[in-house]
């Protein structure tokens, strides 16, 4: 459908324009759907509202800025439409960010979380923080909710760093969901070191299992002559290190580290690393 519209553009410019417009609107709709579907858990999390006004502004700014290259890279990979050039990727990223901001604004207002009497910094902070997961959701909306006809029959090669980046995006998305909650901290405090060790091993095992052993659509397989530990060393272990790094980053952004000792921080990071690792694995399957 999408490809036809582009091909027909030369012959029947009027129809082509109309198709393109419809396709674009459908893309926007899917974006809103994705933003709602994936960011609603965060929009309805109490800690996220509080973070909106108390988190350090420089960390919020850093998160908002880092979201831009992440969206552009995601757009280049999936996008609202098939993006072939970086310019289109930037355009799609901007649209996704816009959808994220609008969706957060509308939902937060509808839920009565934004009121007239609040200071501007609180209003802006709440919307800005929520716009990050919402914009990623908007971007993923197309790939998860959309079913393009030509999906699946194209052969493409993902560069190694692209694969690592996908894992980082997946890990970031899930840890944004979970890092702000108080449960994260409570879990880390209640766990013994033995629990943490088990969680770490479990994370690595599940990460490898999901991508290679269980035959999901989008799963990865190895050539018969490649031993299993090749992929384990080249993909799963770097993926876990990425998941842990993303966990440290999100905990730091949300001021969850505090003045804790190194070991306490490590326990929190391993706990958050569990969903982050699964997010990283899921990203390799989905994207």
């Amino acid at each position: 459908m999408a490809q036809d519209a582009v091909n027909a553009d030369g012959d029947r410019p009027a129809d082509g324009d109309k198709d393109e417009f419809n396709r674009f609107v459908t893309g926007l709709g899917r974006g809103v759907g994705g933003a709602l579907f994936l960011a609603l858990p965060m929009l309805m999390t109490m800690e996220m509202w509080y973070l909106g006004f108390y988190m350090a502004r420089e960390r919020l700014l850093l998160l908002l800025l880092l979201n831009i290259p992440l969206l552009i890279l995601l757009a280049h990979r999936i996008g609202f439409e098939e993006t072939f050039t970086w310019r289109e990727a930037v355009r799609d990223a901007v649209i996704a960010y816009g959808i994220g901001i609008m969706t957060s604004l509308v939902v937060l207002t509808a839920l009565g979380l934004l009121r007239g009497g609040m200071p501007a910094s609180e209003l802006v902070g709440k919307v800005a923080l929520q716009s990050v997961p919402a914009s990623i959701g908007a971007m993923l909306g197309r790939s998860q909710l959309g079913h393009d006809d030509q999906d699946g029959d194209d052969t493409k090669e993902t560069r190694y760093h692209g694969e690592l980046l996908m894992m980082a995006a997946g890990a970031l998305f899930l840890s944004l969901n979970i890092a702000p909650t108080d449960e994260m901290i409570v879990l880390a405090y209640r766990m013994t070191i033995w629990h943490a060790l088990i969680v770490a091993v479990l994370s690595i095992a599940l990460m490898h299992g999901f991508v290679y052993a269980v035959s999901f659509i989008g799963g990865h397989e190895l050539s018969p002559e490649t031993p299993w530990w090749h992929a384990f060393v080249r993909f799963t272990l770097p993926g876990y290190v990425i998941a842990l790094s993303i966990s440290i980053f999100t905990l730091w952004i949300f001021e969850r580290l505090g003045d804790s000792s190194a070991l306490e921080i490590m326990l929190s990071v391993i706990v958050l690393g569990f969903p982050a690792a699964l997010g990283a694995a899921a990203a390799r399957l989905i994207l």
């Binding site: 194209d154 993902t158 990865h220 397989e221 050539s223 490649t226």
Partner: peptide
């Protein structure tokens, strides 16, 4: 590198 085909991905041997 990873090659994607028919929704499956295959890791390069080299």
């Amino acid at each position: 590198m990873t090659r994607s085909e028919q929704g499956r991905h295959r890791e390069r041997h080299d």
